[in-house]
Simulated assay, not measured.
Amino acid sequence: MGKVILVTLLIVLLVRSFFLESFSVSSAQMEMTLLRGDKILINKTAYGIRMPVTLLSIPFTFDKIFGIKSYSTALQAPYKRIFARGVDRGDIVLFNNPLETDKPLDKRSLLLSRCVALPGDSMRVENGLFIINGRSYSGCPNTAEEYSFKASAKKELDDIAKELQISIPVGTVRGDSVITHLSKYDAFVLNESLSDSLTLVPCKKDTLKSHTFLIPFKGKIIDLNESSLVVYKQIILQEQEGKDVKIEGGELLIDDIRQVDYTFEDSYYWMLSDNSIHSTDSRSIGFIPFSSIVGKASLIWHSSDENGTRPERCFSSIK
């Protein structure tokens, strides 16, 4: 009996480490595509298998047990991925937060977002809008955005929404307007029924206003100047961790040697959450390195809320 239990645990650990892992959605970041209470399967082979970095860790535990770390950094393996394949545009991806450089790569907090720009793409951020390769990014129909409507139109809008079986969340009153959040599809349907009733509230969470830049890829060489250092400073600091890196007077110095250009050591992606109101994604943490990517969200295997199981969402694919 003991052997059976041990073998079973080893198989589960192997599958969880290299092939499939369950992830519980606990935030509104990907609403309306993924809801709080969804339990999803992450395909860890979708982009190649990332080998463990932290070798001394207690299996099946969170990063801390009773406030004490469940892993040790005494034995660390270099980053390695076998059968590597790039992320596809539109994939919903689970990745480690690249800004948590005080933790090992595979022990950083996990985030879930949609990949909207690939290595080599041209990106422009302007007044909260994203223009990728010359085309405005509008998101998927489930993308949640903030909309405003006149308080005087609330009853008429509520009546139409009830008729169309659309739920309008309780909003925040600002002057004579009400601010609420809806999916792009629901907002479109409501506006078709009651012309121009809803107005999109632009997202203010952009970090690189009115600036065009390239999504870097491994081996890409860029000239260094004040402008490029502003855009890629975070990447350079992360890639050159452990070295003496300084940016002085618009110049980059690595171990006191002035650099006139820079070659990227990893490929990067731009991730945006479907819910722009409640999100931690590239708007706030910047470029996402390929090394940080864990896998692809592929299936909702269970879903529940305060009212119990949501059977219509169980065993449904993720798009």
Rank of each mutant, 00 (worst) to 15 (best):
K3V: 12
L9A: 13
V12Q: 00
L13W: 14
R16D: 13
S27N: 04
A28L: 12
T33C: 10
R36T: 10
K39T: 07
T45R: 15
T45G: 07
A46P: 01
M51E: 09
V53L: 03
L56V: 15
S57Y: 11
T61A: 08
D63H: 06
K69T: 11
K69W: 09
S70T: 13
S72V: 10
L75F: 14
R81H: 03
V87F: 01
D88C: 12
D88R: 14
P104F: 07
L118K: 11
L118H: 04
L118A: 01
L118N: 07
G120H: 07
S122M: 07
V125F: 06
S136A: 14
S138D: 13
S138R: 12
P141R: 09
P141I: 07
N142W: 06
S148Q: 09
K150Y: 08
A153V: 11
L157M: 07
L157A: 08
L157K: 08
E163R: 14
I179Y: 11
I179A: 02
D186L: 08
A187E: 06
F188Q: 12
F188H: 13
F188Y: 15
L190H: 09
S195C: 01
T207F: 13
S210M: 05
I215W: 01
G219R: 03
K220T: 02
D223S: 14
V231M: 10
I236C: 10
L237K: 10
L237W: 07
E248C: 01
G249D: 05
G250C: 04
G250N: 02
D255K: 08
D256H: 12
Y268G: 04
Y268L: 04
L272N: 04
F287T: 02
F287C: 03
P289Y: 08
S292M: 03
S292N: 15
S292K: 03
S292I: 05
K296M: 02
I300V: 15
D305P: 03
N307H: 15
T309S: 07
S316R: 15
I318W: 00
